[in-house]
Amino acid sequence: MDRVKSLASAILRDWMLLLGLLLLATVFFMAATAPFFFPQPPDTMMGPPLQWPGQYPGAPLGTDGLGRNILAGLFYGAQISLLVGFASVTVAMVFGILVGAFAGYYGGWIDNLLMRVTELFQTIPQFMLAIVVVAVLGPSIQVIIFSLAVVSWPAIARLVRGEFMVLREKAYVQGCIVVGMSDRRIIFTQILPNAMSGVTVMSTIMIATAILMESALSFLGFGDPNVTTWGTMIGMGKNNLRDAWYIMTIPGIALLLTALALNLVGDGLNDYLNPRLRSQRGQ
């Protein structure tokens, strides 16, 4: 309960964190209420094409070249962005934490082996790797999530490994060995909770990256053709860039604000979770 309270007061003190959370809450709200406000799927033609924002009452943010409602696209696109962002980073976290924890805790040849594999993934440019995975396995939401997880886990693994290498030398870990605790228990119940603050911060920022990469994939035509995402909307709008720039700009701003929100939350959490700042408050 105390932690909830202190988190709440940290949020209220830090207006950047508050702003990030509010923006993020808006995106969640859009994703959750999309079917409620727009019972029609976002790819149905709602009215005349190329209506500027405010011009046509059925579509307050205008329509695109095929007469689709841009506002509806934003709401449904939020669903995809959040799904892809959170799901891919969750998968990446599970895998990255496992690899990093074992490498950092055991060291030696286990560390060597796991880290060489991790580096192998890191040497390939992230976006290229994601495109290759999607190109090979075919464009679907599941494949996109998988491809983004594949490019995200090495960074988490390296971070977790670093934390584990520091923490395993702490006297309290030695104490756990002395009372006879198993390695698995030490890794997951003793060290991992203390290593999580950095991972949490990193993962919020990685969600933003994943969302941007998904849009980029969709923009280039590697997206799931059955769903409307912010990236496909931007991609569709590029043909009308001269006469109807709002088609690209509006989902672009949505993307920008979402990425900004996640970064603000990440920074705010960093200040809150940073162990050094924490211990200062503790005294």
């Binding site: 309290y172 030695q174 104490g175 009372v179």
Partner: peptide, 30 residues
């Protein structure tokens, strides 16, 4: 259980995320 140890640094020798009664109980659980 027969050989136990007390460490030098009282600040790093206890897991900061465990409650005191948990810390003391843990060896019995193990």
């Amino acid at each position: 259980p027969h050989i136990q140890c007390v460490f030098q640094d009282p600040f790093s020798s206890l897991n900061p995320r465990k409650r005191v009664e948990q810390l003391i109980r843990e060896p019995l659980d193990i």
